[in-house]
């Protein structure tokens, strides 16, 4: 059963939410990113955000524990009940992916405290390929703009409580769009040794832009630091990137993924093959942020399509 709200009265609906919750929505500053808002006019929905939603659940530098002499105190995040508004379908599915992997108390605390409100995106650009990634409906509420109204799909009881006062829609509206970019055949497990990957890897600068902006990349690094008196200290968690040599460096100085090629292939294969084998969903959600952010315009989706094309020719 869908609820309905006029497009003009959305601001009123959000101002009411801001009173009780921290509302996080896409805004446009130096870059487009998700940020806590005080005024619904700040919301910017035209383009996909450059900084992904994961930054809210996995902060860049997170304090895990602090110690003083022999006393250790674990630090838990103190967040108000939060609403995430205006997330796209790919962003929401990325949270679903993170849920499968991240099980630590800090993440779980933030996750339980959050209500996800999605927004149908009217303008997928030339980098979007979410259609190919078999996305599911994963939301508490989802807004479809149609004919001067928002049709609101309800995904959970948490979400239902927010829209109780709104009238029900007479007919159900679900919209579908078409991506220009597609991945046709995602079965690339047998092509690991194919030399086609070298062209992409040779272009790679190892700048880690792709992993930092990826909404599902969740690798992290844990660092202990002591203060100058050596009696106090803190343990922090910050994000790491598999595209850097230091990521696989172990004691003694050996780096297991020494070559750029193996690092690049691992990124693609983790997203498309390994994660699917283990968790039955693709790790990639098709938001195209890695393609947009790459300074050298490496397009691994193109490479996969070339692979499937050559396979077809071989079969014939």
């Amino acid at each position: 059963m869908q609820k309905i709200i006029k497009i003009n009265s959305l601001n009123e609906f959000l101002t009411n939410l801001i009173k009780d919750y921290t509302v996080i929505a896409p805004v446009k500053e130096r870059t487009t990113k998700f940020k806590a808002i005080l005024d619904p006019k700040q919301i910017y929905l035209d383009k996909i955000t450059k900084i992904p939603l994961k930054k809210f659940f996995l902060p860049e530098e997170e304090l895990l524990l602090a110690f003083k002499e022999n006393k250790i105190t674990e630090v838990r995040p103190k967040t108000k009940p939060t609403i995430i508004f205006g997330a796209r379908k790919c962003d929401l599915n990325a949270i679903n992916v993170l849920d499968k992997v991240m099980k630590d108390p800090n993440y779980m605390h933030r996750r339980k405290n959050t209500i996800l409100i999605g927004m149908y995106c009217t303008h997928p650009d030339k980098y979007c390929f979410c259609e190919s990634m078999e996305l599911i409906n994963f939301y508490d509420l989802f807004f479809y703009p149609y004919n001067g109204h928002y049709y609101i799909s309800i995904g959970s009881k948490k979400g239902e409580a927010l829209v109780k006062h709104l009238p029900s829609a007479k007919k159900e509206i679900t919209l579908k769009f078409k991506n220009t970019k597609k991945i046709k055949n995602k079965d690339i497990a047998a092509d690991y040794q194919n030399t086609i990957w070298e062209t992409d890897a040779n272009k790679c600068l190892s700048c880690s832009a792709c992993t930092v902006v990826c909404p599902t990349c969740n690798c992290f690094d844990i660092k202990d630091k002591s203060l100058i008196n050596k009696k106090q200290g803190r343990r922090t968690r910050s994000s790491a990137s598999c595209q850097l040599k230091s990521f696989s460096r172990v004691a003694g100085g050996k780096a297991f993924r020494d070559s750029r090629l193996s690092r690049f292939k691992h990124f693609v294969y983790h997203k498309i093959v390994y994660f699917k084998n283990r968790h039955k969903i693709y790790m990639c959600v098709g938001c195209g942020r890695c393609l947009r952010a790459c300074p050298t315009h490496i397009d691994w989706t193109k490479t996969i399509n070339i692979l499937s094309k050559t396979k077809k020719i071989q079969k014939k």
Partner: peptide, 20 residues
Amino acid sequence: LTEDPVCFECRKKGNPCLLN
């Protein structure tokens, strides 16, 4: 010393890419 490039820290801070 760290062996990561400046880009890693820059991207983590959420800066817009100057090269782009």
